[in-house]
Design a protein around this nucleic acid. Structure first.
Lengths: 147, 147
DNA sequence: GCACAATTAAAGCCATGGCTACACTTTTGT
DNA sequence: ACAAAAGTGTAGCCATGGCTTTAATTGTGC
């Protein structure tokens, strides 16, 4: 990742949009794993590599690599042959992701998306929902809920 | 991409969701480029590598690589130092993507997302909108439009 | 308490999608 | 007409995120 000004500020609006989408995508993996680890700790008191891999639909080495990245980013800690745990930052990310996921699914349902499709599509959509959009979704749901 | 049964069918529902999101992501690049090329041909009568790169916010070798992939997939054709053109399949993909993009932006606006955020987020969201979800969005917009 | 099963780690391969650097066309301006 | 500028192509680097294979550790059953 080059540190040198990748957004020369006189970049086309279109290019900016694509760049933002790419940035969001780079974060998606971290978000998914932190949420998954948080889920597992809630359910089983611990998060083991094998279980993480199985739920993410990848092989263990792939999960191990992802966890290494989480550790590098200060989101998780782990000791060899022991479980994985989230740091404070990781926990905060998990909470944020969990909320956003729920709101996205609820919004899809509210506008008439069938339950199955809502669950499937939310997994990809959520990573591209900005704070502004999230707040709009929440406002929409509140308004709807009160009708 | 291994051809061998990556979906053993007794895979957890969660894993399936993530796998689907990953598949959608792999298609996103092709979709973005075909739409961009289609746009450029409409606007300028041709799509040149430099212009594609500039609008996508990448360097021209990156665009060249993407175009090579489009050609491999039978979506585009090009001759050295000449423009890029879409095949029949590419044109069809572009049309589908364009429609979906518009519907996603309209839906975001309809539920109260600010214009700027709608444009930005739609770029990432659209690739994860399945046909079922798209149809639901269209139905919602039709119902709204008639109020 | 020890052998075997299950889990985890490590190493190394592949494709993708970014990038820079450099070479070669094509276009343009005088 | 030709030199300079713009555009395009090619090669090769890097990180990511998949994978398989092999090795090491942990935990269990007898």
């Amino acid at each position: 990742m080059p540190e040198n000004d990748p957004t020369p500020s006189e970049q086309s609006e279109t290019a900016e949009r694509f760049n933002q989408a790419r940035t969001a995508q780079a974060l998606a993996l971290l978000e998914d794993y932190t949420e998954m680890i948080d889920d597992l700790i809630r359910d089983h008191g611990e998060a083991r590599v094998t279980e993480i891999a199985s739920r993410m639909g990848v092989t263990h080495p792939t999960a191990t690599k992802a966890i290494a990245r989480l550790k590098r980013e200060g989101l998780a800690v782990s000791r060899p042959y022991r479980g994985v745990f989230l740091t404070e930052a990781g926990t905060r990310m998990a909470a944020r992701v969990r909320t956003r996921h729920r709101v996205v699914v609820d919004l899809l349902l509210a506008v008439g998306v069938p339950g199955e499709a809502a669950k499937l599509d939310a997994e990809g959509i959520e990573h591209h929902v900005s704070d502004d959009t999230l707040h709009a979704f929440e406002a929409f749901l509140r308004a709807r809920g009160q009708v």
